Amino acid sequence: MSSLTLGPVPAFDVTDPAFSITSEDVHRAREQSWYATTPYGIAVLRYEHVNRLIKHPKLRQGSVAWPAHNGITEGPFAEWFASWILNKEGEEHHRLRRLLNPAFSPKLIGSLVPRFQALALELIENFAEPDRCEFVGEFAEPYAARVIAIMLGLPESEWKVIATESATVGLAMGVTLREDLPKIEAALQRLYAFCDDLIADRRARPQDDFVTALVNASRPDDGRLSDTELRDAIVLLIFGGFDTTRNQLGLAMQTFMAHPDQWRLLAQRPELGGNAVEEVMRVNPTVRWVTREVLEDFEYEGLALAAGTTVHLYSEAAGTDPRVFEPGFDITAERRPHFGFGGGAHHCLGHFVARSDMSEALPLLATRLIDPHELPGASWLPDSGNTGPIRLPIGFTPNP
């Protein structure tokens, strides 16, 4: 049976690991209907509908149901997943956001930009061979993990712990969650121990850093973060910050290799680094869908939506919708906002970190890797949920 059936209302079998959420079939389905049916609920395919539904008052953040969709209703992973600020609603969500926000201040993150630049250059200069690299292992993974170490005030030598455990926890965002659960929960326990030690150290020896800001976070009306909230928040930062940045950098290289003129332009105009991140995330986001859940029965565009229905908002399909965007990839263009960081009340808390570290890395890569091209041996996560390359061998002409 095909993983996609086109009709008046298309049907997608997104549980099939071979299903591609960014395929031409999905784009054709977008022309037939603003939504498709899936085993999880409905998939929304057009920009204006995604833009309305991502903020709709009768929808709540929906990823809280992801473990249950995969038959997981108890245990360490289910408990941690339910603890995410992303999966909290109402006043509880707002309280956590108010307490966590100061640690993500542009001033604190901005002060780290020179470290991000030095790190990117160090990794490029240390490629094992002068004219090729395995981009994930030699750049994206150590860069994303060491950025987290810098933020947390950890020795950068700890990056392999961050990378290994985060990559394993990241399997939970894919359609193979159930079979991967034992190793996901083992990695989660190791991250818990790692974070408990880190929190205890900052309580004993405060520093002018991100973790100390979280440990000391308090507001007269909101109290403080509990020990469990602190630990869960830092584990989420480690996992989320690593997984999405590593994946998104790999997807950026995939996109630029398909548009070599834009890569050359970025090398000539490094100030376009921020624009480049936004354009890549519009056409090739690692977060392939944003999830919502229907709170109460209502009708939308003639479709009856029952309470409890999962609504997946397809970020790439929305970001490339020809009703809103001219075809193509252009890092100089002014575009409407993409949905790579979600939207509404649950807009990604760490978006400024991701935007900062990637906008520094991409121009430095562009100036030093001339005419990059994919070599044989690439492998990829399934094209659903969160995706990206597992291995991405790249050849290039080095720029001395």
Rank of each mutant, 00 (worst) to 15 (best):
A204W: 07
E156G: 07
L251D: 02
P270R: 01
E125F: 04
V311A: 11
Y143Q: 08
S315Q: 04
F104T: 05
A193D: 10
D208T: 11
A29P: 06
D330E: 00
G153E: 03
L119A: 03
H94A: 14
R146K: 15
T5N: 12
N70D: 04
G174R: 06
C348E: 04
R146Y: 03
G385A: 10
F19V: 14
L198G: 13
R224W: 03
M151G: 09
S384F: 07
L154C: 03
T309K: 08
T244M: 12
D13A: 11
D330W: 02
L230H: 02
R292E: 06
F139Q: 00
L230N: 13
E91D: 13
W159F: 15
Q32C: 12
G7T: 12
L99H: 02
H69M: 13
I85Y: 00
K58N: 15
A120K: 01
R292A: 09
R52C: 10
P382Q: 12
L349W: 03
L119F: 05
P10F: 09
L181V: 08
L4N: 04
T320D: 02
T22D: 10
T38V: 06
D371T: 14
L375T: 11
T176F: 00
R391Q: 13
P398Y: 07
G385T: 07
P102T: 04
H56R: 14
V294Y: 02
A276N: 09
N284W: 01
R60T: 13
A187H: 01
F352S: 15
V169T: 05
E48C: 11
F104R: 00
P206K: 09
L198V: 12
L152Q: 05
S63Y: 05
N216T: 05
P337C: 13
R368A: 06
E334Y: 07
L375S: 02
G137N: 10
D232N: 15
M358S: 09
F194I: 12
P67F: 07
H27V: 09
A172H: 04
L198Q: 08
N247E: 01
R60D: 15
P270Q: 03
E299I: 13
T22R: 14
V136A: 09
A149T: 08
Q248A: 15
F325V: 10
K183I: 14
L123V: 09
R323I: 00
I21K: 11
